[in-house]
Amino acid sequence: MELIFNELSFKPYIDNEALFKNKFIEMLSTYGKLKETFGISNLLFPRATFNHNVSEASTFIQWVSSLTNSSERNKIMAFIRTPFSEDILEDAEEDKTNKYYYENAEIPIEQEYCIGLGICHAKERIAISLNSHNCWQPHILSFKEIVDDEFNTKDVEVHNVCKSEQELNVDLSEKLLYYGKLELVETDIEPENKK
């Protein structure tokens, strides 16, 4: 099972680069702890992560490239590689992921498409968010899915993790445990007839 990065959690921008770096490394550490505890296989980032702004002045790739500590730069770049979150989608699901948006006047985000959260909803995965604001800390994140050509929407939600010291609620712990297990079921179907 994979965790999918919520690229919108770059907002609100953290103007202090050292603080931003610490928050990003904290998120990677959270993933490491979940991987160790629950057997999470990957942390997947949307392809567009490189081009997302992390401040008013720079994109993610510009920020990473500017890091002077090569070991920190390499650690971060080791996570931003293939497969990307879009790679786990079936062909029919690819179009659907463009139909999700998030809004939060407090940050402010106004009806912004959310690739990571959309993929989490479409594939029933768990999001991981940068701890840039308390709106990213809940275990459940709510957003909108556009359900028709008239732009009618419905509320949808996904499970989310943000901080390692955060207590995982029972619901999320059970979801993570479930994804970490493979259940084999005996069947009378001949191997050549299995799909």
Rank of each mutant, 00 (worst) to 15 (best):
M1H: 12
L8E: 02
K11V: 08
K11D: 08
P12C: 08
Y13H: 14
D15A: 13
D15Q: 12
A18T: 15
K21I: 07
K23Y: 09
M27R: 01
S29K: 09
S29C: 04
F38A: 00
R47L: 09
A48T: 06
A48C: 10
N53S: 10
V54G: 02
V54L: 04
E56N: 08
S58K: 13
F60C: 07
W63L: 09
V64C: 04
S65T: 15
T68H: 12
P83M: 07
S85F: 01
E86I: 06
E86C: 07
D87I: 00
I88D: 05
E94R: 15
K96A: 11
T97G: 00
Y100D: 03
Y102A: 00
Y102P: 02
A105T: 00
E106M: 03
I107D: 02
I107E: 03
P108Q: 03
P108W: 02
G118P: 04
S129T: 05
S129E: 05
L130Y: 06
N131G: 07
H133V: 05
C135H: 08
Q137S: 12
I140M: 08
L141M: 09
E145F: 00
V147N: 05
E150S: 14
F151G: 08
D155Y: 09
V156H: 06
E157N: 14
V158C: 12
H159T: 07
N160I: 05
V170H: 13
V170F: 14
E174F: 12
K175V: 10
L176E: 08
L177K: 15
Y179I: 03
L182P: 00
D188F: 13
E190S: 14
K194P: 00
K194R: 14
K195F: 13
